[in-house]
């Protein structure tokens, strides 16, 4: 992988303001004030260790996005010097950006973890794609694909990178979220979560989705990526890329499967992505922010919230994500 333009300034930041814990200044009675990132890190690591201690067959869902990158980094810390004692699972749609596939394989290898890639065979056979099949694409590749993968491997606990600040219905999600044996989520029937005591007991066939990043915000994620020098997909940083404009979304023409309409010509624009999904469904924004601090600066000054670039939340009116969760979407 080519060295990322962000590294230079990211390093500068962490050198100027080291996040890592430095030893007490001589006097052991002095209070150590932990920063919010140190406390979030400690909480996430504690959650992962509880799952490994109590679940029989855990897995980490890995979507190759920036949240997944942070989650994987935390897993490495939680179990060091051992590699994380579970595999990574990528529920693939075959329509991710090429840069994502490249980083996925590298990240798994670097972490010393097994990478499982699952593609829903039915979606593959029927040639389901985002251009011709609309919402069915997400439903079959992702929602159905995830259920099939969990069933096939018999995973009883799956880590996911969702955060409570992403969307209203997620604010009430538990850290340990129980799913019936058909993967359903019942918001009225979740267990109370007290202190940092997680009840991981479940009946055969039931499973848990575990969200170790529940209490992180988007800004926390970016700050942590900078402080810890975590490698992320370069698409988060602005660069000249071939694009077309469709239905108000700026789409990147990532490979020659992109069907151009008569007269349509890809235009080179300086763009970046706030979230990453299937390239034909993920809207880019025009931006000149080529380094991490610039991206964060733009994010803080901008007035558009994170998931806006994804078409998925707008299905089914305001309660789109909640409905998807009840159907078993992550």
């Amino acid at each position: 992988m080519v060295a990322l333009p962000r590294l230079a300034s990211a390093k500068k930041i962490s050198a100027r303001f080291p996040l890592r814990f430095t030893a007490a200044m001589g006097n052991s009675l002095a209070m150590q004030r932990l920063t919010h990132l140190q406390r979030l890190e400690a909480e996430s690591i504690h959650i992962m260790r509880e799952v490994v201690a109590e679940a029989s067959n855990p897995v980490m869902l890995y979507s190759v996005g920036k949240d997944s990158a942070v989650m994987l980094h935390l897993a490495k810390k939680a179990f060091y010097p051992a590699p994380p004692p579970f595999p990574l699972l990528h529920v693939d749609t075959t329509w991710k950006f090429r840069d994502m596939y490249a980083l996925r394989d590298k990240a798994a290898k670097d972490a010393g973890m097994e990478l499982l890639v699952y593609q829903n065979p039915e979606a593959k056979e029927r040639g389901i794609n985002p251009f011709d099949h609309g919402p069915l694409h997400t439903d079959m590749w992702k929602t159905e694909g995830l259920k099939q993968a969990l069933d096939q491997y018999g995973f009883d606990a799956a880590f996911g990178g969702a955060r409570r600040d992403e969307e209203k219905s997620r604010a009430k999600e538990r850290i340990f979220s129980f799913r019936t044996n058909s993967h359903g989520w019942d918001p009225k029937n979740q267990r109370p979560e007290l202190w940092n005591l997680y009840n991981a007991r479940k009946a055969k066939g039931e499973s848990i989705r575990v969200f170790p990043l529940s209490n992180w915000t988007e800004l926390d994620i970016w700050q942590y990526i900078m402080a810890e020098n975590i490698e992320i997909v370069p698409l988060y940083m602005a660069a000249k890329r071939p694009t077309v404009e469709r239905d108000g979304l700026l789409l990147m023409v990532d490979d020659d499967r992109f069907p151009l309409e008569p007269g349509e010509e890809p235009v080179m624009r300086s763009i970046r992505f706030r979230t990453l999904g299937c390239y034909p469904l993920t809207g880019a924004i025009e931006s000149e922010a080529a380094t991490l601090p610039e991206v964060v600066q733009e994010m803080l000054l901008t007035t558009t919230s994170e998931r806006q670039g994804r078409a998925i939340d707008k299905d089914a009116g305001g309660a789109g994500m909640e409905k998807k969760k009840q159907e078993g979407y992550f």
Binding site: K12, L19, T35, H36, L37, M226, P293, V296, Q297, L301
Partner: peptide, 21 residues
């Protein structure tokens, strides 16, 4: 702290990195 974000993002990030919770 809009002004700081626009003028010196690194100073802003440093400030926010050291917050308590």
């Amino acid at each position: 702290t809009d002004a700081l974000i626009a003028e010196d993002i690194e100073a802003y990030l440093a400030l926010h990195q050291h917050k308590g919770l």
